[in-house]
């Protein structure tokens, strides 16, 4: 299994030239070849969602995708979430304020899961949000603070996305 492929991946707007085995998952490639270790592996069989990233805007388990499948796609990971000057994204800020994380291992996956969904539909109601958050596993928080944080961030993101109407 030592045949490798040269790939060009776009991650968080940056081009990475990598050389990986065809069996290499996107998660392993992000972590080992791109140096982006914010994407975590909790199960490597697609249940826990800790490895969730956005591929062309859609939340995806990066442990279930091969790196060779995503050449040409736009990949987003937790490292790209904050502003370049360090200002936290509203989701990150809300997780912080509402204690939406404890050990922090699942957090990047929840952030990317929520980011993908809220970009697609910023008007998710509480029931839809609960359904969404049930996609991933957290062992520390009991989920309520994650839900509260995502709700709070959604409200801020919606307000930002819709500038106030002209007087």
């Amino acid at each position: 299994m030592s045949d490798t492929r040269d790939l060009t991946l776009r991650v968080n707007g940056t081009v990475h030239h990598v050389n990986v085995e065809p069996r290499h998952s996107l998660a392993d490639t992000l972590r080992e070849s791109c140096g982006l270790t914010g994407t975590h592996l909790g199960c490597e069989h697609g249940v826990c969602g800790a490895c969730t990233v956005l591929i062309d805007g859609r939340a995806t388990r990066s442990c279930l995708v091969f790196a060779v499948q995503v050449e040409g796609s736009e990949i987003e990971t937790v490292e790209g979430l904050a502003e370049p000057d360090g200002t936290l994204h509203p989701l990150q800020q809300a997780f912080w304020e509402h204690h939406g994380l404890q050990c922090g291992f699942c957090t990047p996956g929840f952030l990317m899961l929520a980011l993908g969904a809220l970009r697609e539909n910023p008007d998710l109601d509480d029931e839809e949000l609960r359904d969404l958050i049930a996609s991933n596993l957290c062992r520390c928080t009991g989920y309520q603070n994650i839900l509260t944080a995502v709700r709070a961030a959604a409200d801020i993101m919606r307000a930002k996305a819709r500038p106030a109407p002209n007087p």
Binding site: R31, L36, T37, G38, T39, H40, L41, T77, V78, E79, L81, A82, L88, Q92, F95, W96, E97, H99, L101, G104, F105, T107, P108, L111
Partner: peptide, 19 residues
């Protein structure tokens, strides 16, 4: 008080053993 531990964990800059 929101936790002092959180900014690194929220930005993917935590250092877990596999990292």
């Amino acid at each position: 008080l929101p936790r002092l531990e959180d900014p690194a964990l929220l930005t993917g800059r935590g250092q877990f053993v596999a990292d």
